[in-house]
Every structure is written in C-alpha cells, then in structure tokens.
Amino acid sequence: MPEFHDPSRLLALGHDWIAAWNARDLERVLALYSDDTEMTSDRIPAFGFGASGTVRGKAQLRAYWSAALAQLPELHFELIDLYVSPDSVVVFYRNERGKKICEYLRLDDQGKIRQGSANHPVH
C-alpha cells in the first residue's frame, strides 16, 4: 500500500481539507486535488455548471468553487468525524447553516484527490 494511503495520512488529509476551506483558501483546497479530478454534488447545477451534477478537471472545479464561495461569505465547516478506507477518506462535517454533510474523497496513486462527492441529507 502506498505511504499516502496509510490511515494516519488519510486522517491528516481530512483535517487539511477542513482547514483549507475554513481559511477560504481556494488554491490551498485545489492543491489537494489531481488535475483530472471529478467532483459530484447536487449543488453543482444550481451554480450553472451542468445538469449532471459533476464537474471535471481542476479548472472547472476552480470556477464552480469560486462561484460558490462568492455566494457563501459565512462558509465554515465543523469537523464531526473522519472515516478511512485503503484509498479514500470521508469527511463528515456540519456547515455554517448547521447542515450535516459527508464528503467522499478518493485518492489517486499520487495521493491527490481524484474523485470527490458531496453527500447531503435528503430531508
């Protein structure tokens, strides 16, 4: 197993992800992602980035998150828990509106996030 798939490294990635968002540092967040990353969220269409709910590539991800950050000046994530598998981490957190969200982050063989999925409650 590659060193970056060690559970302690995956937990560190989850903490870094939360810290980067709370700093509102988009470039710091994007540095955690691979150039060919994919992100899926039911929030993507609302920001005008396609009905599929998926953005592909770091440039499209930057555009989507830039738009989202501009509309969410109070954005803040409170970490609830982290869950790891051999190649992924799930970041369970509460956002600034009190909503609980699970962010599934799958890593590539370089230790960068290759696939992300924001999972929101239905109710």
Rank of each mutant, 00 (worst) to 15 (best):
D109Q: 09
G53H: 04
S8Y: 02
W17G: 08
M1N: 09
G98I: 06
L79M: 04
H76S: 04
E103D: 15
S34I: 12
W17E: 09
K112A: 06
A67H: 11
S66K: 02
L82C: 03
L69Q: 06
G116V: 08
N95C: 04
Q115C: 05
R56A: 11
E27N: 10
G48Y: 10
A51C: 02
K112P: 13
H15Y: 03
G98E: 05
D108Q: 12
E96R: 02
M1P: 14
K99E: 07
S41G: 14
D6T: 08
L105Q: 13
Q110E: 12
T40S: 12
Y64E: 03
S41Q: 05
S8R: 14
W21M: 00
H123C: 09
Y93P: 03
L11N: 14
L79Q: 13
L107N: 05
H76W: 00
M39T: 12
G116P: 08
A59S: 13
P45S: 08
L69K: 00
Q60H: 14
S41N: 06
Q115L: 14
D6F: 04
Q110Y: 09
L75M: 13
H15I: 03
E103C: 13
R43S: 10
N22Q: 13
D16F: 01
H76Y: 03
T54L: 06
R56G: 05
H76I: 00
Y83V: 12
D81H: 08
S117M: 15
F77H: 10
A70E: 12
E38L: 01
V122P: 00
L72Y: 01
R56Y: 03
I113S: 00
R43W: 14
K112R: 14
D36W: 04
C102W: 06
G116T: 07
E38D: 06
L11V: 08
D42W: 09
V84P: 03
R28T: 07
A23D: 03
A31D: 14
S34G: 15
S41D: 06
A59F: 03
G116M: 04
Y64K: 00
W65R: 08
E96A: 10
V84G: 02
Q71V: 11
I113V: 15
Y33N: 09
R56I: 11
G98K: 04
S34A: 15
R62W: 10
P86H: 09
A19K: 01
A68C: 00
Y104T: 06
D16P: 02
E27Q: 11
W21R: 00
S8K: 12
E27L: 04
P121N: 12
A118D: 13
Y104I: 07
Q115F: 14
S52V: 06
I80Q: 15
A68I: 00
L72E: 09
D6L: 09
I80R: 12
E3L: 14
D87N: 11
N119H: 09
W21C: 00
G50L: 09
I44D: 10
R97C: 01
L75G: 05
S52A: 12
T54N: 07
Q115I: 08
S52H: 08
L75D: 01
W17I: 10
H76R: 13
I101K: 03
E3Q: 15
P86C: 01
P73K: 04
H15M: 04
N95F: 01
L69N: 02
V89S: 03
L72Q: 11
T54W: 04
G48N: 05
D87K: 10
L13W: 01
L11D: 08
F49C: 00
Y93M: 12
K58H: 12
L11H: 14
